[in-house]
Design a protein around this nucleic acid. Structure first.
Length: 231
DNA sequence: GAGGAGATCGTCT
DNA sequence: GACGATCTCCTCT
């Protein structure tokens, strides 16, 4: 899409997310481990526009990735892996394409995907999604009461932020940490639906004090679902 | 609309 | 015991 106004193709395709009728996963192919077997700075722009797929009980939840941050591991003081491997961050040192979920500020979970070859740490933090499917379930999980009209401004509250998107997808450390996000037989994986992104903006990362000036945050310039526009 | 502060708990030192 | 890759509510302008 050219970098004009937000495209209708990015609007929600299913409110219920119930998996009946035509296969809602038709045309979706899982990403491969080799996709993530690279520097997160390279993976980040490529991962924008892909779809995070979640099977939550009998409901399919899907969201397009519109905002990410890269964390580089041993070379990045802001990264959890900077101080070395611990029980908490062990997934980051494992094979690429796996979910690293951690608990922060006593309230929130954050979802990352591991990058780089096994033995080297690096990851991408999911900061925002555009809700595509299963909006009612997402609203319920978020503790919101969905308006029947689904006004666009309310939609932003579902998945615009790292803590919000994990809550909307029902992602927790106990249930999802260490999952293979390239395995479409699981209940959490990443798909390519053929969408090709429009203009990508690169800015400083949010909410950190160390290495705060590095341009490692990537998002779609025109997406209303990005957590914050200012870098 | 912008800014500040509290909530709340796992992880690390 | 201190800190933190956040969110929400409340207050002020």
């Amino acid at each position: 899409m050219p970098d004009g106004n937000w495209s209708p193709e990015m609007s929600p395709i299913s409110k219920s997310g119930k998996t009946k009728g035509p296969d809602p996963l038709a045309g979706l192919t899982p990403l491969t481990p080799s996709f993530f077997d690279r520097d997160p700075c390279e993976v980040g722009p490529d991962l924008l526009g892909k779809v995070l797929v979640r099977r939550h009980r009998n409901t399919l939840l899907m969201g397009r990735i519109v905002e990410l941050e890269a964390y580089l591991g041993g070379a990045d003081p802001a990264a959890h892996a900077f101080a070395g491997k611990t029980a908490r961050n062990a997934v980051l040192f494992g094979p690429p394409g796996y979910a690293y979920v951690y608990f922060i500020y006593g309230n929130h979970y954050c979802l990352n995907v591991s990058c780089m070859p096994e033995g080297q740490a690096g990851c991408l933090l999911f900061r925002a999604l555009e809700p595509l499917s299963g909006l009612r379930r997402m609203a319920t999980l978020r503790g919101l009461h969905p308006d029947p009209q689904d006004p666009p401004l309310k939609l932003r509250l579902l998945t615009s932020g790292p803590g919000r998107l994990t809550q909307a997808m029902g992602i927790t450390r106990a249930h999802d940490n260490g999952k293979d996000l390239t395995d479409d037989s699981g209940d959490l994986w990443i798909a390519d639906d053929g969408y090709r992104p429009h203009k990508i903006v690169t800015t400083k990362r949010i909410g950190i004090t160390k290495a705060a000036s590095l341009p490692l945050r990537f998002y779609f310039q025109k997406s209303p679902f990005v957590s914050r526009k200012a870098g």
